[in-house]
Amino acid sequence: MATLEFVARRLVWAVFVILGIIIVNFILLRLAPGDPAAIMAGQAGATDEQYIAQLRAQFGLDRPLHVQLYTYIFDVARLDLGFSARQQVPVADLIFQRMPATLLLTGVAFLFSLGVGILLGALASRRAGGWADSFITVLALAAYATPIYWLGLMLILLFSVWLGWLPAYGMATIGGGAGGLAYSLDVARHLLMPALTLGLFYMAVYARLTRASMLEVQDQDFVKTAKAKGLPDWRITRAHVLRNAVLPVISYAGFQAGHLVGGAVLVETVFGWPGIGRLAFDALLQRDYNLLLGVFLFTAIMVIVFNIITDIVYTLVDPRIEVGR
């Protein structure tokens, strides 16, 4: 019951956030350089004032701002994000086309970073100064300091240019079959470097977080109780320490999901991964603001979905939800 209520509360909050983002989006659209009507007219090859005024009326650009905002919110609710100025395709279509690639990339990177990060952190906490501890310390320092796009380039240099092991570009070999195991393997080979690039930084973050969290939990009273019960070490670590230590990591990871999507813009650009990040880069190059803000809106919504999923996972693990928040 408390769990349901908690989730419901998060959903209500999510609706407000999305509404807020739509408003921000609207403001940014109005701040964007150039008169949208003039741009549209320019694309149609016309420049006369009368035609521009007509366009303005047609798209409601002459009405008061709050009315415009109101219509904009309803447009967005119907997934109408307007047209891409350059590609003359609805923005929503473009985004949905590219969604799966981005979901695949960020999803794999997220699971990889969380899984390996927690594992490494747990290992490191077993013995301070041991190999795992030193390894994650060095790894974290390096990962914190490496620009993610540069890491991608250096991996390309090493594994594609010099060693020739992995493809540097795209999501699948051009002209390869569509479907079947061979195709999946091909995509996996293409996915390896981008996912690693995107996930490495967060893996280091989660590893350090897990380690710190484990060390903290190890000092808590209930672990003393478990020792006094005469439980074996592995049982104490698994049933008592790890479960409690992982909770803050999960909630932090959900919180960080937004940054993962942001990082995807850079990684997709480097690896030519055909997702919405790459779409954003193209929009930037072409100063296609409608498309750019559509991508912005969508990444923000993705983050909220990510957050809600982690919230639900959290409630499944932690019985105290009602008291906790």
Binding site: V17, L28, G258, H259, G263, N307
Partner: peptide, 20 residues
Amino acid sequence: EFFQTIPSVVLAIVLVAILQ
């Protein structure tokens, strides 16, 4: 919290692009 929910890299890029 609202600001933290928006992916920061994307927001920064959009802001720079819009503000020139």
